[in-house]
Simulated scan of single mutants.
Amino acid sequence: MTIKDITDLVEEIAPLPYAEDFDNVGMLIGDPKQECSGVLVSLDTLENVVDEAIEQKCNLILSFHPIIFKGLKKITGKTYVERVVLKAIRNNIAIYAIHTALDNSFQGVNTRMCEVLGLENRKVLIPQKDTVKKLTTFVPAEHAEALRKALFDAGAGNIGNYSHCSFNVEGDGTFKGEEGSDPQFGKKGQLHTEREVQVGITFPRHLESAVLKTLFAHHPYEEVAYEVLTLENNNQHIGIGMTGELPEAMNASEFLQRVKTVFKTGCVRHSEFTGTPIKKVAVLGGSGAFGIKHAIAEGADAYVTGDLKYHDFFSAEGKILLADPGHYETEQFTKNLLVDHLRKKIPNFAIVLSVCNTNPVKYL
């Protein structure tokens, strides 16, 4: 099994095209074609994590955060980033980061936050824009069903909780094969009319290459007429943050105690109590101050995230309870999520959960 075989499995739940533009995801160090001896899954890639990979005989570190975030002009070992890069290269260890691709996955970071808090009826808090595309093509009527099936099998036709969705209009198509053509229908040099079906079908953005490859492979025409448009529809399963509901409402003190307990944190920084029972909760792993306005707009009673600054707490404005258990604390379950996914896919392969605590923040 190669390193790429492993990372392809990761991208099943977190396709890289949905990572944020500012991010640095994917293979950071190493050869994807190299045979993989084992995978160490960690939240961060620090020197002690590389040492752990060496000890566990893993030549791939699957890290949530990217150790290389900005361009490196020198690699001399002067900084902790440079030391990690040097040690990984010297020991032939590949490093792959998933970060905001997993943040934007419905099976990712925020789902685990909802799970530990016991939230039900989960929905994406901030849907990512431009993730739904539409293919329109024209196919001879007798070939329409086979083409639709092939496109469905390639992952097209999914809208929210529905699959096998398409729209079909029957009509007459005309064409004349000119010099150099080899028409499958009609004769070269003669105007031909063919009963056709216009097939319209949606698909998620990351599948565009696979969908078009399927179209060309299963369409009977020598020249395939088609167009691809980006739709305004929100994809219910792609976006950052999440909302959910507690089975029973709690008062603010009880809720904050639950946050402190399940996130195993030394303290929870929070805004002033609103006097409203906590029922609907919004979450966003990592640095989530930008999500406050979205949580309020969704009618959440509380918002759990990390890295809130002094003035961020003012923006609660008595409308919502803000709770900050810490950046690391809100993302700590990510490595368990990835380990669980890979062990289900390849149960007999060496998938190792890192035991290193990479949290740089300490509590007195």
Rank of each mutant, 00 (worst) to 15 (best):
F333A: 03
I75T: 12
A94V: 01
K4F: 04
H206L: 04
V41K: 01
G288N: 05
T174R: 06
F333C: 04
G291C: 10
Y303S: 00
K4A: 06
K293P: 00
V211K: 07
Q56G: 01
K33D: 12
D340T: 09
L86P: 13
S105G: 03
L338S: 03
D103E: 11
Y303I: 07
K264V: 08
I89T: 04
V39Y: 04
Y80W: 06
G118S: 15
S37E: 07
L364M: 07
T230E: 07
Y328V: 11
V85W: 11
V304Y: 05
N357Q: 14
R83G: 11
P204K: 01
A97Y: 02
T276M: 13
V109Y: 01
A154W: 01
P220T: 12
T202P: 00
V262C: 09
V281W: 07
L40E: 03
H143E: 15
T276A: 14
I68Y: 03
G299C: 13
V283H: 03
G318C: 11
E272F: 00
H270R: 14
T358A: 15
T330G: 09
L191F: 15
T131E: 04
V259Y: 07
N92H: 13
T334M: 13
E232Y: 08
T45Y: 03
L60K: 01
A249C: 09
A154Y: 02
C356T: 02
A101C: 04
Q198M: 05
G291I: 10
G71C: 05
R205G: 01
L338C: 02
N92Y: 02
Q198C: 04
G244L: 08
V361L: 13
K73A: 13
A14E: 04
A141T: 14
A14H: 01
H270M: 12
F216D: 08
I278W: 09
V224F: 05
R148P: 12
Y18E: 00
F349V: 00
I13C: 07
H218E: 15
T45E: 02
D23P: 08
H206N: 02
P360W: 09
K133S: 05
K176V: 02
L191E: 06
G155Y: 08
V10F: 00
T79L: 06
G266K: 01
H65I: 03
I320Q: 01
E115F: 10
F64H: 15
Q184N: 15
A350M: 05
F167D: 01
R343F: 02
